[in-house]
Design a binder for these strands. Structure first.
Lengths: 223, 223
DNA sequence: CGCCCTGTTGCTTTTATCGCACAAAAATGT
DNA sequence: ACATTTTTGTGCGATAAAAGCAACAGGGCG
């Protein structure tokens, strides 16, 4: 496997910078990447020219180019999903998410919707763009359940495959329960829709709605 | 000014890929960058490891990592906005909000602040994370007013564009009045800051403070 | 069957990158 | 206010990393 060291460093830098909420000095960045400061300077300069980072004084932080990039990430799927998610969120009174598999072991929530009418001061901590492992959370499990049964899979996955939906509690956040159903996107990856809520709800009925949403999205992405 | 050629190429590749809505073959990419195919392959491999692109069959397209970056960018913007919002809330005695455009017709409030000293039992029904249409509420109108004049726009929008701030009453909640000013996040996203109050206030002075806050936030995301 | 395209690898050559070393600026202490 | 330490920012030559070329296996197509 041949990967480019220079580019790799640049991207790692971008990642580090994006993680630093209140910016990073060039020296800090150099330390994190374990490279000479001079290199870090050149990396930052290059990233800056592409508007991916911006410098204010001595601190480097994520730039608007990141937002631009994301705007172009509109797979037709994400666009099409938005109204479905909104409907699902409103119907169940919980936050709804669309999650895409990334590679074989991770997934990323790429779109979400909150119910229009709130049932209290709920704030669900499942955030768009935060990668996590497939094993954690209902959305990831639902994606795993799409694959043909595999020897060492957890029982959770087998159950999800059989029932058509996955359910987890507290795996991604204390006190939160998630229900999700997976579906295939023809071109490539697995995906799942699900809801996350902090309160009690009728699992049967929510599961049905989630599965319904999944099949709608599946047919959308086939067409 | 010293910029890294390798990284630069990688980022240009990322840009090209992000522009091709339905993907790019590696050969096309190599042509666009005017490099050997072998190099393009190595670039794609590296980008792929960082989740910024994904390959489906022969086509390369923008990957979920872009969404990750966007999420973090938004997170940072919200953090940076918090003190400004707090100051605005305290100065005006009203609840202050930061709202981001979401697509072309909706927006979502992503951060808020309440005045530290209360002027009564204020409860503003404008909730973080709840999407609504751009036409409703001062924050949305302010974002619409950023766009070049468009034929069938409401008079409200034209007024907002001219004066630099929007003002609405009761659109999102009975008896609530909102004042907001928009600003550009130089990529794609429109944003606005505003206040919402249930009581009477001096529009002129509040508008000035809101505009001030908007320009501060704009410079934060530009610099 | 022959042709064109994709994806990958090995190797040579060059050139872009590394990392030292140094200047400038800021922060710190007295 | 001044001296000193720490941190920031930038040339420059040596070197290692990437460019560029060529070759090759598989696959799809006429």
């Amino acid at each position: 496997m041949a990967t480019l060291q220079g580019l790799d460093r640049g991207l790692r830098a971008l990642n580090s910078i994006s993680l630093a909420a209140d910016g990073l000095t060039v020296a800090d960045l150099a330390a994190q990447l374990d490279v000479d400061r001079a290199i870090a300077y050149r990396i930052v300069q290059t990233l800056e020219e592409h508007a991916l980072v911006s410098r204010q004084g001595k601190r480097v932080r994520l730039g608007a180019g990141a937002a631009t990039l994301a705007g172009r990430f509109q797979h037709q799927l994400v666009l099409a999903a938005q109204p479905v998610l909104q409907e699902l969120a409103d119907a169940t009174g919980a936050s709804a998410f669309l999650t895409l598999a990334h590679g074989a072991r991770e997934c990323v929530p790429v779109a979400g919707a909150q119910p229009t009418v709130h049932h209290g001061p709920v704030q669900v901590g499942y955030r768009i763009g935060v990668r996590h492992r497939l094993e954690r959370g209902a959305n990831g499990v639902a994606i795993l359940a799409l694959q043909p049964p595999w020897p060492e899979e957890s029982e959770e996955i087998a159950r999800a495959r059989e029932s058509g939906y996955s359910i987890t509690s507290g795996q991604l956040q204390q006190g939160a329960t998630g229900v999700a159903a997976g579906f295939e996107v023809p071109g490539a990856v697995g995906a799942s829709v699900g809801v996350v809520a902090m309160h009690e709800f009728d699992v049967e009925s929510v599961a049905a709605q989630v599965k319904e949403a999944a099949s709608r999205l599946a047919s959308l992405s086939n067409a």
